[in-house]
């Protein structure tokens, strides 16, 4: 840590060297403060935990906010059924290590109930998650749902509040958001409405990796370079899975890749990379010329406003 010499501000106490707060210290403190405001003000909060890097960072921040106490909320995963097995295993291990309660609600169940209907089985279930998510919010009566979304991810997120209001239909109204001033958060909702809360709003992809490096946080190994069978399609590397088989005429290649995001298996693509550890990922992130979602998400390229439309309908 860097240091600076400071005057003594309190009388009778010798001058000391005050620690200089790095940008990660600043971001960490802000996120902890937000998590504690949720705990202090919301009656029945929940934290979305997918096993992805952003929500893994949230768990570390929650430890710093609440230990030696328990988390004042359960963890919830909205399971699309289209997962990377390793991420699900990581999710379960991490929740068990922390000794915190993990709830899982699945899109498959919503499909059985008939509340989710997909065009075909191999369609991305990313958007369908919103239905299952809102069903879970209703089922448990959550009044606040904490998530790992970041404003740098996507344009529609850049204007979202830290405490982001959702009406009784789970909808986000970007034109009618509550002004958010200083670090004073208006957490109030009426029955049936809820808040989405984003403690790492101000973090970038680089900040997340720098924090993972600094804290020595474990993440699923598919974030690191590994050989994988992929197809080159529309400038993306599409992983070959049972849901995304090669199309006629396409060539399957074994390529060293890593995932920058992990989401629905049918629409999440890795990037070509030899980065085998967090330091190498940080070096690559600094040099990259393509955004996180631009490189990896098929669904965000559909239109300039596709994320915004999903969010208005309740998407995370």
């Amino acid at each position: 840590m860097n240091a600076r010499i400071a005057e003594s501000f309190a009388e009778g106490i010798a001058p000391v060297t005050l620690p200089l707060r790095s940008h990660l210290d600043w971001l960490e403190s802000e996120a902890i403060h937000i998590l504690r405001e949720v705990a202090g003000e919301c009656a029945n909060p929940v934290l979305f935990f997918s096993g992805g890097k952003d929500s893994i960072v949230l768990l570390r921040l929650a430890e710093k906010a609440f230990r030696p106490g328990k988390f004042p909320f359960p963890l919830l995963h909205i399971d699309t059924g289209h997962n990377f097995d390793e991420v699900i295993a990581f999710r379960d291990t991490r929740a068990a290590e922390l000794g915190e309660r993990l709830l899982v609600r699945s899109v498959e169940d919503s499909m059985k109930r008939g509340t989710v209907r997909l065009h075909k089985e191999t369609d991305s279930r990313n958007a369908a998650q919103s239905v299952t998510l809102l069903e879970a919010v209703d089922e448990f009566g959550f009044d606040a749902a904490i998530g790992g979304a970041r404003r740098d991810e996507e344009k529609a997120r850049a204007k979202e509040r830290v405490f982001s209001f959702r009406d009784e239909f789970g909808q986000w109204d970007p034109k009618n958001q509550r002004p958010e001033l200083w670090n004073i958060y208006n957490t109030r909702v009426h029955k049936g409405e809820h808040m989405r809360v984003f403690p790492i709003s101000n973090w970038t992809e680089l900040d997340v990796w720098q924090y993972i490096e600094r804290e020595g946080i474990a993440v699923p190994s598919l974030y690191f370079s590994h050989k994988r069978a992929v197809i080159r399609r529309n400038g993306l590397l599409v992983p070959v899975t049972r849901l995304t088989p090669p199309r006629a005429g396409e060539t399957v290649e074994e390529v060293p890749v890593r995932f920058r995001t992990v989401g629905d298996i049918t629409c999440t693509c890795p990037v070509e990379s030899g980065a085998a550890n967090t330091r190498e990922i940080i070096a690559e992130t600094v040099l990259t010329t393509v955004t996180e979602r631009g490189a990896t998400r098929m669904d965000d390229q559909t239109s300039d406003a596709s994320m915004e439309r999903r969010k208005k309908e309740g998407y995370f």
């Binding site: 740098d152 850049a158 204007k159 970007p174 034109k175 101000n202 970038t204 406003a305």
Partner: peptide, 29 residues
Amino acid sequence: LLTDGLEAEREQGITIDVAYRYFATPRRK
């Protein structure tokens, strides 16, 4: 258009709300 992310903003050519942008140099964020 880099900062005006919402559909209505692009349609109407206006900016609706406070947007937050990030950059970093070797010295600070």
